[in-house]
């Protein structure tokens, strides 16, 4: 194995593009090092991107925030303006692993790991986050939702690196939230999860909503029936019940050591219901 820590993105892409064997990009390393330890991958090349300019920066941009690919969860949580704008995305990120893992883990890494149970991804998808990808053929933008294509697989092509994730500006009276179900209070992988981002008008009526589910399908689900269930409502009990039912109906989970199909299906709806109420409250709605 070779370890490189280039100073420019061009060098990083050059290294990755010319590597004939398996390579891995290293940002926080909280997935890559576990895979190395368990010998799940035996890469020829590791490229540490943390020394590349901008990778560790959170930058205000057009009313939103650009989050460098090597920004840790802890750094996101310490950024008051980011927390104020996208509290749901930040709380999703901060749920990953322990305080120690938070010191290293990144949004981009959580995305590229392409786990169906990744915590930050449903929140980013609900937020319409966009990844900036640099590769041998230049730079492109890609909605976060289109990056994971199946468990452990992404749509990135050889030599491509996510350099940042953009969380867009949002109207006033908006809020987002993320909840997951785990058997303990911490340190587990999500058994089911939900991200909700919504905007309300001055009457407290939901005008826009986006609802996503994690760990209940090979990739994150966007549940249009759930968002339409609450648009035009003040999250009255009937609307919430419809959202919950729509979420459960959308689930296509597996049975495994972490949960059953039945359990995931039911709790995904419960998580979505509770997340919607939190997001509504954060948007300034009162019930």
């Amino acid at each position: 194995m070779r370890f490189e820590s280039p100073d420019t993105i061009e060098q990083a892409i050059g290294l990755l593009n010319t590597c004939e064997g398996t390579s891995r990009v290293l940002a926080g390393g909280t997935d890559v090092l576990v895979q190395l330890r368990l010998a799940l991958v035996e890469p020829e090349l590791i490229v540490d991107i943390k020394h590349i300019a901008g990778m560790r920066d959170i930058t205000a941009e057009d009313g939103g925030f650009r989050i460098g690919a090597a920004v840790s969860g802890a750094e996101m949580g310490e950024h008051a303006d980011l927390v104020a704008l996208w509290p749901g995305v930040v709380e999703a990120m901060e749920l990953i692993g322990s305080t120690q893992v938070q010191g290293r883990a990144t949004l981009a890494g959580n995305l590229c790991n392409a786990s169906p149970a990744a915590d930050s991804v449903p929140a980013m998808v609900a937020a319409n986050a966009v990844a900036t990808i640099v590769g041998p053929n230049g730079t492109r933008e890609c909605p976060v939702a289109d990056i994971p294509v199946s468990p452990s697989k992404t749509s990135l092509t050889k030599g491509e690196v996510i350099t940042s994730i953009y969380l867009p500006a949002r109207p006033d009276n908006s809020g987002d939230a993320y909840l997951r179900f785990i058997p303990r209070t911490e340190m587990d992988i999500a058994v089911s999860s939900a991200g909700v981002s919504l905007t309300i008008n001055c009457d407290g009526v939901v005008t826009q909503a986006r609802v996503s589910l994690g760990a209940v399908a090979p990739t994150v689900l966007v549940v249009e029936d759930a968002s339409s269930a609450i648009i035009g409502t003040k999250l009255e009990d009937a609307a919430i019940a419809t959202l919950q039912a729509a979420c459960s109906a959308a689930c296509n989970p597996i049975d495994d050591k972490r949960g059953t199909v039945e359990f995931r299906t039911k709790t995904a709806g419960v998580m979505a219901k509770r997340a919607a109420l939190i997001a509504y409250s954060r948007a300034g709605g009162s019930k």
Binding site: R184, T185, E186, M187, I189, K257, R258
Partner: peptide, 14 residues
């Protein structure tokens, strides 16, 4: 579940 991730012993916050 041969690891502390899925062999779930109580953590402090539990």
């Amino acid at each position: 579940n041969a690891g502390f991730l899925d062999y779930r012993i109580p953590v402090a916050s539990d």
